[in-house]
Simulated scan of single mutants.
Amino acid sequence: MKRSIFSLMTVILCLLSISYSYAQKAADEAGFTSLFNGTNLEGWVGNKTSYLAQDGMIVIDPKGTGGGNLYTEKEYGDFILKFEFQLTPGGNNGLGIHAPLEGDAAYVGKEIQILDNTAEKYAELHEYQYHGSVYGVIPAKRGYLKPVGEWNEEEVIVQHPKIKVILNGTTILEGDYLEASKNGTLDGKDHPGLQRHMGHIGFLGHGDVVRFKNIRIKELK
């Protein structure tokens, strides 16, 4: 009898734990809006030839070209962006923020690197070119990507001019891009887009296959 009561209590505790987990997840997602409907690229503009809606993912398959860029139709200011991505060996892409639709988003907007840090061909990159970095401006910590082929979860929090990048639960970048560049950028180039506080969000192709899913955003007041 005691064993039966103990077993029942164990089951109840497990159910309560699962219920709490779902409730917490729902609370964490409150206020978020999906940027991708899972079936087509409605709400996006740019290269819809290299970027495809496929099996609930946005897949860039450049087929020997650079791949170009795919941007949200809407412009965003301060926000929390969550998404998952899957790299292929040597994969290279970028997350454009506060970007106009024309020009190199790394300079006329801001680019957060999406990169296979483990690829041998990238061994000699500058620190500000690795995954999660604000390209040319603020370097990110390395060592938190999952093995190539596995899905990574990323969260980007932007409150101009502050930015935070969380990769698989670890903060790999946190800083103020205007403060970081006040005496010049790390790459020594002009980045007028650092002044922008509004613009499109985009995926920036660099010739490699990369997959994205569960893309959602919460705008901050």
Rank of each mutant, 00 (worst) to 15 (best):
62 P>E: 06
62 P>C: 08
63 K>L: 09
64 G>Q: 04
64 G>Y: 04
65 T>C: 08
65 T>W: 13
65 T>V: 13
66 G>N: 15
67 G>K: 03
67 G>L: 00
69 N>T: 02
69 N>Y: 12
69 N>Q: 10
70 L>T: 05
70 L>A: 00
71 Y>M: 11
73 E>A: 08
73 E>S: 07
73 E>N: 14
74 K>Y: 04
75 E>F: 00
75 E>H: 11
75 E>S: 06
77 G>H: 14
77 G>Y: 10
77 G>Q: 13
78 D>M: 03
78 D>P: 03
78 D>C: 01
81 L>H: 02
82 K>N: 09
83 F>H: 14
84 E>F: 06
84 E>R: 15
85 F>L: 13
85 F>G: 03
85 F>T: 08
86 Q>V: 14
86 Q>A: 13
86 Q>W: 12
86 Q>R: 15
87 L>E: 02
92 N>C: 03
93 N>H: 12
93 N>Q: 12
93 N>W: 12
94 G>L: 11
94 G>M: 11
94 G>P: 01
94 G>K: 01
95 L>V: 05
96 G>Q: 04
97 I>M: 10
97 I>G: 02
97 I>L: 13
98 H>Q: 14
99 A>L: 09
99 A>P: 08
99 A>F: 00
100 P>K: 01
100 P>E: 04
101 L>H: 10
102 E>K: 11
102 E>Y: 10
103 G>M: 01
104 D>P: 02
104 D>C: 01
104 D>V: 09
106 A>M: 03
106 A>V: 04
108 V>P: 02
109 G>K: 00
109 G>E: 00
109 G>T: 04
109 G>L: 07
110 K>R: 02
111 E>P: 00
111 E>S: 03
112 I>H: 02
113 Q>V: 01
113 Q>D: 15
113 Q>R: 11
114 I>A: 09
114 I>Q: 09
114 I>E: 09
115 L>N: 05
116 D>T: 10
116 D>H: 07
117 N>S: 14
118 T>M: 05
119 A>V: 03
119 A>G: 02
120 E>I: 08
121 K>F: 04
121 K>Y: 00
122 Y>L: 10
122 Y>P: 07
123 A>I: 13
123 A>T: 12
123 A>C: 07
124 E>C: 09
125 L>P: 07
125 L>E: 14
125 L>Y: 07
126 H>T: 12
126 H>K: 15
127 E>I: 11
129 Q>N: 15
132 G>W: 01
132 G>R: 09
132 G>Q: 05
132 G>F: 05
133 S>I: 11
133 S>Q: 07
134 V>H: 01
134 V>C: 06
134 V>L: 08
135 Y>Q: 04
136 G>Y: 12
137 V>C: 15
138 I>L: 14
139 P>N: 13
139 P>T: 09
141 K>Q: 09
142 R>Y: 06
143 G>Q: 14
144 Y>K: 03
144 Y>F: 14
146 K>S: 15
147 P>H: 05
148 V>W: 13
148 V>D: 11
150 E>R: 08
150 E>N: 08
